[in-house]
Simulated scan of single mutants.
Amino acid sequence: MAVVSDINIAREELRARLAECRRGVGFTGAGISTESGIPDFRSPGGIWSRFRPIEYDEFLASEDARLEDWDRRYKMIAEIRRAEPNAGHGLLAKLVRGGRFSCVITQNIDGLHQRSGLIDRQLVELHGNGTYASCLSCQKRHELDDLKVEVDEGRAPRCKACGGLLKAAVVSFGQAMPEIGLTRAAEETDSCDLFLVMGSSLQVQPAASLPLMAKRAGASLVIMNREETHLDDLADLVIRAPIAKVCESLI
């Protein structure tokens, strides 16, 4: 395992790994988006340290819980909309569009990968997407701005098509992870030759098991994260430097 913190050395090491790659996979966590100005919601001072979790079953059962959840979602979307994709997002978009990476798997719900140029089929959003809502009954997409009047009037929004409950399209506490997304993530990971982690502490399961799966399948593992992770010893390269700084000249 090589651990690099110098930005210039890290850039050249990453460039060399990418040059050898034929079918890579990107994997992103909160750390790539904090460099765009989005708070890590799980860290001290983040939303989940300031508010109690709202379990999925509680959301289904209680109008008060639904309104509390919606209030948080609008606080989150205000943070998200102030942010812009950074060079880390840009590099991954370039690698996917150029055919060197098959996809990006993300734990993030902020939509910055789409804003960097990726389309939905090039992404696996394991925890969903917080920039829009979907109907829990018919899955119809709804835009958040169209629903705010109802929330401001004290009503949890319902689907205009079927009357079902609407919820931000994220995986809530106690809600099952999307099987289709998990299956695709595993398939992409199992067939890649380079697994590139950007900004994940690799603590949240089951997503955090993917780098280990990649290594077992014979892929190279590169971890870019400010802090140490429990998989660093398995990595071929560990970069502890700002993601955007390392990536900006590689786009």
Rank of each mutant, 00 (worst) to 15 (best):
M1D: 06
A2M: 06
I7M: 06
N8Y: 06
N8C: 04
I9D: 07
A10L: 12
E12G: 02
L14H: 04
L18E: 05
C21I: 05
R22C: 08
R23K: 09
R23E: 11
R23W: 15
V25P: 10
A30P: 07
I38L: 03
F41V: 02
F41A: 02
R42S: 00
S43N: 12
G45W: 06
G45S: 10
R50F: 08
F51I: 07
R52D: 15
Y56N: 12
D57L: 13
F59P: 00
S62F: 13
S62D: 15
E63N: 06
E63V: 03
E63M: 10
L67R: 03
D69S: 15
W70E: 00
K75N: 13
I80D: 12
I80C: 04
R82L: 12
R82D: 04
E84P: 04
E84A: 13
E84K: 10
P85D: 09
N86Y: 08
A87R: 10
G88M: 12
G88C: 03
L91Y: 11
R97P: 10
R97L: 13
G98T: 05
R100G: 03
R100L: 03
I105A: 03
T106D: 02
Q107W: 04
N108T: 01
D110E: 03
L112E: 04
H113D: 07
R115C: 06
I119P: 02
Q122R: 07
L123A: 03
L123Y: 10
L123C: 05
V124C: 09
V124D: 01
L126G: 01
L126P: 04
G128S: 00
G128N: 08
G128P: 01
T131S: 00
T131V: 09
Y132P: 00
L136A: 13
S137M: 07
C138D: 09
C138K: 12
R141V: 00
E143Q: 14
D145N: 12
K148M: 12
E150H: 11
V151G: 00
G154T: 08
A156K: 05
R158T: 13
R158L: 11
A161V: 15
C162W: 13
C162S: 02
G164V: 02
G164A: 03
L165Y: 09
A168Y: 02
V170K: 01
V171I: 14
V171K: 01
Q175K: 08
M177F: 12
M177E: 11
M177D: 10
M177P: 07
P178H: 08
I180P: 09
L182A: 08
T189Q: 06
D193Y: 09
D193R: 07
G199M: 11
L202I: 03
Q205N: 04
A207N: 01
A207D: 04
A208G: 07
A208I: 04
S209D: 14
L212V: 05
L212E: 12
A214T: 06
R216Y: 06
A217L: 07
A217K: 13
A217Y: 11
S220W: 11
L221Y: 14
R226A: 02
R226D: 01
E227N: 14
E227S: 12
E228A: 14
T229P: 01
L231T: 13
L231G: 08
D232I: 09
A235L: 05
D236H: 04
A244F: 11
K245G: 11
C247V: 00
E248Q: 09
S249A: 15
L250P: 04
